[in-house]
């Protein structure tokens, strides 16, 4: 078992309301750095909402009220005066269904690089190649980098989205059920990638498949009706759950 050193993200009394309807209720969690944290729980329990609160992506929706603190690297990102794009740059997002931007494969990966750095063409190309290699897509696309990204298969698109996210060198990867739209082989590829990437990134994986959480997680957070029921290191959580609701969920009695 790895020593959980520093916490990358902590929340303190985090509450989220949509249209005056509470979705996330008084959440206090700690997410360890450079590990894979799985957020599990039945559908509609607020997993995605919690995930998107970390990079302040909830705010683009209408009628959202967020209170409490989200502390990233010791800084409360909810306090006023932060440059929101900088916060988001620290955290790459992988969504349920891959959404490649309406441009070429190359430009998808170069997108963030062009925004944040003035790189010359050669550096840009090297960076793009590196990111595509990281996600194991380079060999499949190196001859058609300038094709529209929409021509890739869904599994390839998801890896492309991963490449796009790591291109801007985030610290955290927020993954929102990234394998749910994929076939088993493509899903396995993504899982393997996440295991590889957690050496360099703090990976937060929202999943509704328990087996996936068991396979990959170092740390587990169990959400139920917007509340944290139990959190802890994976082996402890799965082998020796303390809360009766956790036990019920793990044995498939509630879903």
């Amino acid at each position: 078992m790895k020593k959980s050193s520093i916490n990358q993200i902590e929340t303190k009394h985090l509450n989220v309301e949509f249209h005056n309807h509470p979705v996330i209720k008084d959440i206090n969690i700690e997410i360890p750095a450079k590990q894979l944290t799985a957020i599990i729980g039945p559908s509609g329990c607020g997993k995605t909402t919690l995930l998107k609160s970390f990079n302040r992506l909830l705010e683009i929706q209408d009628d959202v009220k967020i209170t409490g603190q989200i502390v990233v690297d010791g800084i409360n990102i909810m306090s006023a005066g932060h440059n929101v794009p900088d916060i988001r740059k620290k955290m790459g997002l992988i969504s349920q269904k891959p959404y490649p931007l309406p441009m070429s494969i190359f430009e998808n990966v170069a997108y963030g690089l062009r925004i944040h750095h003035d790189k010359n063409a050669k550096e840009l190309a090297e960076n793009v190649q590196h990111c595509l290699q990281e996600v194991g897509l380079w060999n499949e696309v190196k001859d058609r980098l300038h094709d529209p990204a929409s021509r890739l298969s869904v599994g390839q698109q998801q890896r492309l989205c991963l490449a796009r996210a790591i291109a801007v060198q985030p610290e955290v990867l927020l993954c929102d059920e990234p394998t749910s739209a994929l076939d088993p082989i493509a899903a396995q590829q993504i899982e393997k990638l996440l295991l590889k990437l957690k050496k360099d990134y703090t990976v937060i994986l929202v999943t509704h498949t328990l087996r996936q959480a068991k396979r990959v997680a170092d740390y587990v957070i169990f959400l139920y009706f917007g509340m944290v029921i139990e959190q802890g290191p994976a082996d402890e959580f799965f082998n020796n759950p303390k809360n009766p609701e956790t036990k019920a969920y793990l044995s498939g009695e509630i879903s």
Binding site: K52, L57, K89, L93
Partner: peptide, 24 residues
């Protein structure tokens, strides 16, 4: 909305997202 989120989450501003993703 996920397409806009994809752009925003690499640290693009709203205007950059509108210009490069929504318009396109």
């Amino acid at each position: 909305i996920a397409l806009k989120e994809a752009s925003l989450s690499v640290g693009a501003t709203k205007w950059e997202t509108v210009k490069k993703v929504v318009f396109r």
